[in-house]
Design a protein around this nucleic acid. Sequence first.
DNA 1: GTGACATAAAAGTCATACTTTTTGTTCCCG
DNA 2: CGGGAACAAAAAGTATGACTTTTATGTCAC
Lengths: 233, 233
Amino acid sequence: MTTPAQGLHPHVLTALGLAITAGEYPPGSVLRTDELSQRFDVSRTVVREVVRVLESMHLVESRRRVGVIVLPTASWNVYDPQVIRWRLAGADRPRQLRSLTVLRSAVEPVAAGLAAAHATPEQCRELTEQALGMVATSRGRQLEAYLVHDIAFHRVVLNASGNEMFARLGDVVAEVLTGRTHHQVMFEDPDPAAVTLHVQVAEAVRERDAVRAEELTRQIAVGALKELDVLAP
Amino acid sequence: MTTPAQGLHPHVLTALGLAITAGEYPPGSVLRTDELSQRFDVSRTVVREVVRVLESMHLVESRRRVGVIVLPTASWNVYDPQVIRWRLAGADRPRQLRSLTVLRSAVEPVAAGLAAAHATPEQCRELTEQALGMVATSRGRQLEAYLVHDIAFHRVVLNASGNEMFARLGDVVAEVLTGRTHHQVMFEDPDPAAVTLHVQVAEAVRERDAVRAEELTRQIAVGALKELDVLAP
DNA sequence: GTGACATAAAAGTCATACTTTTTGTTCCCG
DNA sequence: CGGGAACAAAAAGTATGACTTTTATGTCAC
């Protein structure tokens, strides 16, 4: 299964990144650039660039006279969106989804509280719009449309928090929500209680009620965690 | 001011990384590899590897027939420890410290709650030890020694949470605490109230009291935020 | 057994030649 | 005068070969 890509560098990078994050090479494994260049049928130049990138993600370490050593999971840059995507595509996706959801449960309530304080009128409007969109698509098997609004909603909250670190988690949340919808058994429509909570969060932010926005978002997070427990105990 | 480094690649990487994160090149600026290779007196090979790494951090984007374009802050990988270090070394260090502290305030309480549930006896012991170390060094201008215990304490909590994403924030917390101690006016010994709170957190974790551990850690976080407000309003 | 030393293996660096993509320009035709 | 198509140049992307540097490892003398 060769990964499709426009250039050689992206091709080799994703191939190696996927293989390593999938645990195909256990920590301590040694790769050599010449061997890789042969295997992928590219020049050493390309391989070296790829290795440098993997090194910056702390997936591997390059040592003279030894080769390219695969590092243990503990040292990986698990916040790198690229790494997250690779891992979500692999086997320990459930574990990954869980740890990301826990992260969400910590961050999003605080972000919502800040959003209540800092959101611009435009952001309030957008938030309400997405919440209403969720309501509209919450019944009758419109899961894909619902997902779009759900992602947009959470992204607005994170952006409106005014905190750069929170804002950058928008992609992570998008991955998690997408994963949940696509991967898990989604015969049923979304939980009506959750939908209501989203509407109420939009309300709280609009009314500048930080405490309420935080608490309501915390309830959403608790719901998401419970959902995980049901499906992967 | 050439940055010291063992290899050529790290040298050029840190030089460029620092320059870009410092805003020396405004977003949209265009660099050319030939020019860079001349400026740093290294081969194009080295420059290309560096550019690829910067590209993976979303600091720049390389386009054919155009050059290497500096991207706006919004697209940077702000969770990359390397990027964090570069930015903390630069001019908007205060803003950076604030956003990282807010992140801490969201994550650490939840992590402490989880730690109360998951910490091994060894981790409990370590936690208590570090808390006692903080007490012992909290008076008489032993700020450096205190810092070591402080960092170790928070690192143990994050690790003990059992959540990979939390654990990887240990380095970030270390940077923030170090920055606070070294950068700010630290004529006074640490706040005794904060020291006490740390001891109590260790206690709560030992007693498996998740709610209390979370609440106490939240108080520590609130204190840290207040401290920031005093010094950079 | 221990320590100094030699060897070789692999990454690191460099220079150069060539390919590919993209953009800006020019020129022709309507 | 305007628009579009062909063209040319610029810069990144790729490939290759030669050389340097570091360092693990084996060897030999003591």
